[in-house]
């Protein structure tokens, strides 16, 4: 039996669950609206619009609460990137995923209480949570109030640009979701990381 670390406090697990739920709704309804067709609706258009709006508001509120909780929690230390030697650490982690994992090598940056993310995870989470998510939230809110958007940007409609940025950022975050889910299978066992985000205890390799 490997050692267990309590890495995911209750507030974080609750946020993660709501975030996952809202994001799934946003993803499915977003695809349905983007490819809406009178003949083959994944979700009926009116329902897709209403659900996307509600889930969008929900995920933004959850995000704001997550940021507030982070401010008063030691959890924020995990998101502080040490840029010195970052490239080397990222290379090491990528080499592990591409080769080391098949040779049953030990992870180069094992999960500890001091640092629960490996360098690749850390950079990805920071990019998703603090770059892509704000882009999605700001463009999403702007599309709620299109009258606030600049009408014309160098001859292209401002609303169209906002929508393209929203859809593109949404696409990248959706790719992250799939990669996130796959890498979650690479814990101590196939399902241990999924259990961790429910129980809060991380099972080390």
């Amino acid at each position: 039996m490997s050692a267990k670390l309590y890495l995911y406090p209750l507030w974080l697990r609750v946020w993660h669950a709501f975030n996952a739920l809202f994001f799934l709704v946003l993803l499915i309804t977003g695809i349905s609206m983007q490819y809406s067709s009178p003949d083959l609706p994944i979700v009926p258009f009116e329902l897709a619009v209403a659900s996307h709006n509600i889930a969008g508001i929900g995920i933004v509120i959850a995000y704001v609460l997550f940021l507030l909780a982070m401010m008063f929690s030691p959890n924020k230390k995990h998101y502080k990137i040490q840029f010195k030697g970052l490239i080397g650490r990222l290379t090491k982690q990528i080499q592990y995923y591409v080769f080391g994992v098949f040779k049953k090598q030990e992870p180069p940056f094992p999960t500890t209480e001091a640092m629960k993310f490996n360098p690749l995870q850390q950079v990805t989470y920071v990019a998703v949570l603090f770059v892509l998510f704000p882009i999605l939230a700001i463009t999403g809110i702007a599309l709620f109030f299109p009258e606030l958007i600049v009408n014309n940007v160098f001859g292209v409609g401002g609303t169209l640009l906002t929508a393209l940025l929203h859809a593109s950022a949404g696409f990248v975050v959706s790719m992250f979701l799939f990669i996130h889910l796959y890498f979650a299978t690479m814990g101590a066992t196939f399902t241990s990381n999924f259990k961790s985000i429910v129980s809060g205890f991380h099972e080390a390799h």
Binding site: M33, S36, G157, A163
Partner: peptide, 9 residues
């Protein structure tokens, strides 16, 4: 064509 009016879908 639709630069002037954005329509989802």
């Amino acid at each position: 064509i639709l630069n002037e009016g954005y329509m989802i879908g």
